[in-house]
């Protein structure tokens, strides 16, 4: 469990996506997401589908891992499709019974939306599956640098993100320890009634909060003691550099936006 949280969803393979600069990945995914929102005809869906299929194949990450990422949204997907089928009115009646009438248009618009969501989830999982959380955070920090002019504390924000990632395993371990300790004292976590269930978590949350506050103070001291200052005037060990592959990736993404824009204009 601890392993899972630390690496996020990252899966190590030697694909080109793993070698891309996190910044170009963030920019590209942003473009692709915009492109996918422009889709409104069958040709567009086909092209987008092929594109996602190609990317996933290139990533060398097994399909089942991508499909696992779809599981949590299964409910939303089914809800979307049922909602559209039941409530979209159209010209071509497919089925009628009492107050229930189902139109072909409903089925079509529902499936379109579902396909679009699936494509978006797959392509964004590609980002988190091929980039370590810390790299992503660093890429994000560098991209946000211009915000510093607006007094947004970019460095501190990035340190905060990094520390959060660092302490997730620690806190998970602590949580395990507290739960064990409270079980040993006879706290019952298996109670069925909701109220009792909620109450039984208080003896876990309170100690966890207490140790976390204590830890935050110690951490602040440790950071200060090592001359972090206000985060300005630091040098960075890792310097990000765009390679040819990064420019190619970003060009392809921009090209996708253009293509979908043209498809949309032709179609509508």
């Amino acid at each position: 469990m601890i392993e899972n949280v630390l690496v996020g969803q990252f899966v190590e393979t030697s694909s080109v996506f793993h070698r891309l600069d996190p910044r170009s990945k963030l920019i590209s995914i942003f473009c692709i997401v915009i492109a996918f929102f422009l889709i409104d005809n069958a040709a567009g869906y086909l092209l987008a589908g092929l594109f996602v299929f190609g990317c996933i194949t290139l990533s060398h990450i097994p399909w089942r891992i991508f499909l696992k990422g779809l599981k949590p949204i299964l409910f939303i997907l089914s809800f979307t499709i049922v909602y559209h089928i039941l409530f979209t009115k159209g010209e071509n009646l497919l089925f009628h019974y009492g107050i229930l009438s189902i139109y072909i248009e409903g089925i079509i618009s529902g499936s379109r939306l579902v396909v679009r969501i699936i494509l978006l989830v797959l392509i964004t999982s590609l980002l988190t599956l091929t980039t370590k959380p810390l790299e992503l955070a660093y890429g994000f920090e560098v991209l946000c640098k211009p915000l510093k002019k607006l007094r947004f504390p970019v460095e501190q924000f990035s340190l905060m993100l990094a520390i959060t990632l660092r302490f997730i395993p620690t806190i998970v371990m602590e949580l395990d320890k507290i739960i064990e300790a409270q079980k040993a004292r006879g706290v019952n976590f298996e109670d069925k009634s909701l109220m009792k269930k909620v109450l039984s978590y208080i003896p876990i949350i309170v100690p966890l909060l207490f140790t976390s506050i204590n830890r935050a103070e110690n951490l602040a001291n440790a950071i200060d003691a090592r001359a972090y200052g206000d985060g300005s005037g630091r040098t960075r060990y890792k310097t990000l550099r765009f390679e040819t592959r990064d420019y190619i990736a970003m060009s392809i993404s921009l090209f996708m936006v253009g293509t979908f824009l043209i498809l949309k204009m032709l179609g509508g």
Partner: peptide
């Protein structure tokens, strides 16, 4: 535990070096 800021041993040593530029 509470003075280990980074996600790896190497990065932990680097942190201070970055701070003093």
């Amino acid at each position: 535990e509470d003075q280990f800021i980074s996600t790896t041993v190497f990065d932990e040593v680097i942190f201070g070096l970055e701070n003093i530029a």
